[in-house]
Each structure stands twice: as structure tokens, then as C-alpha cells.
Write a protein that binds this DNA or RNA. Structure first.
Lengths: 219, 219
DNA sequence: TTGCGTTCGTTAGAAGTTGTAACGCAGACC
DNA sequence: GGTCTGCGTTACAACTTCTAACGAACGCAA
């Protein structure tokens, strides 16, 4: 509390306004998706004029980029906490699911439909590799099962490209990739509502997939 | 050819213009995503004024809905052809992948980030169930392996809800769901570019997942 | 306490979007 | 040939993002 650093009152005010802008932006995104985000509406909500927001963000794109950054950081933090708690791959998976269900549009901001021209800034990919590292560590802890796959051979030595210089056995790389794609497959379809009206509980499908990832009995 | 039905010249012209509008719309979507679709730009491309398009589509939303419908129909047709060709689940999977790679934004229009308020019209869900039926049939043809899963028990008798009155064994339901989510998991992350710079071939990951779905050796 | 300078919020305006309304023309049908 | 339906137009309203110029307030420093 006392350690606010060497921040001038102006800087503190600026940070506070920026935070409120992002908060309103998240509300709008949760309500109507990222494409419906309107700077004007945010400004009106905050009781100020439209162009005022340009003192805080260069434009709509920069605001969204900042939100994407925050979303990545949020997931990375959740993963770090889960890793520290020692829940293993199961803990990581449930952390991911909870994080996704907590704000579906935030999940889609990270893993959803990309805009063709857009290229994420470097620090975002850095956070993404941090997330991958946590997943890879959890996968490396599991005992190897079955014979080495052809894909694993193809993956040989690629681990330090994904993460920050992090050697891992090819089988762990394969398993991490599989975890990622399978859990994302269930989650994204569930969040998008593609299971609506099918009459089953998506939670069971998620845990079933998780079981194939961690359990000895595969499928 | 000769059988154009009882179409007046006006109707034929109208259908032709509508088709060209959709064609331009697909070009725009492929270039910059669905959120960047502009009726004005389409009109300018076609050499007419903006409001003229409203003779053919009630608005932007209706045009996009129509494109979504076409996308679903396109995938359903591709699946029907693959089923007729007798390629089995493997054929279906490669059909899906080819269809997705052919126009990533079209794939995302079907399986990508949903707009919170939007609800798909009934006929779209009908086509979706047709797609599910093809997948379910291919899964039912495969021999059952392993013990019945808890999820399969939960899925008991749900098949005729997804498809059009199509009884299927629970194990096939579970396998169909797993196919869907796993293939979508790999495909959507690949198309979104999340594998970029990781140095491996996404095709191998896709086929590896497909092998776990069809092959006897599971993982 | 008295300036000074940075920063903020304002209004005005350009250029774009979706969508509506009213008008004229032209093609189709009787 | 007359009538009627439908198409494309321009004009306009209400939005959007974003720039430019102005004034006021605030923090800092002398």
C-alpha cells in the first residue's frame, strides 16, 4: 500500500482512468462481443466526450490489443497459481475451464476467430509461451505411456522454441499439444453454444477428454 | 439446364444479383474477416449505390446469416459426398480439413466466435444436425473398443435428438462427439495461427489425432 | 504564493458506416 | 399501349472512429 513507487498524482489518475476504460470495455465485450465494442459508448458511460478516450488509447485497435494482453496475462497468472498449487495436469485443465467459463468472450479474445490482417505484438507471444511452459511442465511430469509416436519424432527438440529454452522429451511435447487441442476443442464448442439442445452435460465431455489425457486407460 | 422452372426474368436477375453480392461478401470476409464486411464497399464494387443492396438483403445481419447458411450447406454437401464415396471416418475428417483450409474464414463463420445476442435460425440447426448425422454414421460403422465409458452411459438415447430420429449406440455417440471436438480443436488453433512459429507441421498433428480416433491403438 | 508548462477534456469537423424515405425510370405483363 | 411492380437513385438521419484546435485545470518549481 505504502509502496506506490514514484508515481506522480497525474500518473495515478491516468492509470485509474485507463483501468476504468478497460473495465467498461470488458463489460461491453461480455455483453455483445468484441466487434461491438464502441469507444463512444464507453466515453458516454464514463460521463465524458468521445475524443477524450484518445488521450488514453491511440484507438480502438490499441484498446483491444491491451485487453488481449490482459486476457493472456490473466490466464498465465491462473496457470502459474495452479502449477504452484501442485494440481498437475488435472489442476491446470480445470483452471483453464473455470477461467473460460468465467468470461467466455475473454476466452474467445485469446483463442477465438482471428482477424486476418492482425499480428499480435511480441510480448503477447511471450506470455503465450509462458502458458505453454506451464502446460509442458505438467505433461513432462506424467509417466510416458505407449510407444513413441511418429509425431513425437517430428517434434524432437522443438520444445525450446515454444517455451523459453525449455528442453522436454518429444513425448511430452506431443502430449502438451494434444492437451491443448483437445481441451480447446471441447471448450470452444461449448462456449460457442454448439452443444445447446443436445441434452448432455459438457462438463462430462470435458472430464472424459481430460481422463484420456491423464489416465492410464487411453482412448 | 432447360429446367429453370417457372422463373420470371425479374426473378432470374434478382437471383443473379443476390449471388454476386454474396460472392463479393465472401471475398471481403476472406480478406478481412466477417466483422469488416461492408455493404457500402460491396455496392461500390458492383458499381451501384449503397442503399440499392437493401432491395436484396434486409441488412448486414441478414446477409451474414445467409452466408452462414451457405457455409453450413457447403459443409453438409461435402460430408454427404464423402459419405457416398465411402471414405469412412477418415474420409470425413480429411473432407473437413480440406473444407476448412479452403476458406478459413468460412470455417470460423460456422465454428468460430459467436456473437452473444445472436441466435441461429431453425434451418441452420437442421443442416447442422445433418452434418452430425454423417459423422455419427461414420462412427457407428467402427468397431467398439474398450469398456463403455461413463459419458456413454450419460449419452444413452440422446442420438435422435441430435440427428433426425437416428438411433445410435451410446459408444458411437461418444465417439462422434470426441471426433468433433478433437478435430475442431486442432483445426481451429491451426487456422487461427496459434501454431505459427512452433516449427511443426499441423497436418501431422491432425492425422495423429485422427489415428487415435480410428485406429486400434489409442492414446 | 505566483507563475509556467504539461496534460486533460472540450467542441468542431472529416470520413466512414448502416439504414430509411421519397422520387423517377424502366421493364414486365395484360 | 397503359398500368403496375420493382429497381436504383439521391437525400438524409444517426451512428461510428479519429484529427485538430482551443481552453481550462492541475502539478511543479521558483
Amino acid at each position: 500500500m505504502a509502496e506506490t513507487g514514484t508515481t506522480t498524482p497525474r500518473e495515478r489518475y491516468r492509470a485509474q482512468v485507463q483501468a476504468e476504460i478497460k473495465e467498461r470495455a470488458w463489460e461491453q465485450i461480455a455483453a455483445a462481443g468484441a466487434s461491438a465494442l464502441s469507444l463512444n459508448a464507453i466515453a458516454k458511460q464514463m460521463g465524458m466526450s468521445g475524443p477524450a478516450l484518445y488521450r488514453y488509447f491511440a484507438g480502438r485497435d490499441e484498446l483491444i490489443t491491451e485487453l488481449v494482453r490482459d486476457a493472456y496475462r490473466s490466464l498465465a497468472d491462473a496457470f502459474r497459481a495452479a502449477s504452484a498449487a501442485g494440481g498437475g495436469l488435472t489442476g491446470l485443465a480445470h483452471t483453464l475451464r473455470d477461467w473460460a467459463l468465467d468470461d467466455p468472450q475473454r476466452y474467445f479474445l485469446v483463442y477465438g476467430t482471428p482477424v486476418p490482417g492482425y499480428h499480435a505484438p511480441d510480448d503477447v507471444t511471450t506470455i503465450a509461451s509462458e502458458i505453454m511452459t506451464a502446460l509442458l511442465d505438467a505433461c513432462a511430469d506424467l509417466p510416458a505411456d505407449g510407444p513413441p509416436t511418429p509425431l513425437a519424432a517430428h517434434l524432437e527438440g522443438l520444445g525450446d522454441q515454444w517455451t523459453t529454452g525449455h528442453p522436454a522429451p518429444p513425448a511430452a511435447l506431443h502430449r502438451a499439444l494434444t492437451c491443448w487441442t483437445r481441451l480447446h476443442g471441447v471448450l470452444s464448442l461449448e462456449l460457442a453454444g454448439h452443444f445447446n439442445g443436445m441434452g448432455f452435460d459438457p462438463t462430462l465431455l470435458f472430464t472424459a477428454e481430460l481422463d484420456t489425457l491423464t489416465g492410464a486407460s487411453a482412448n
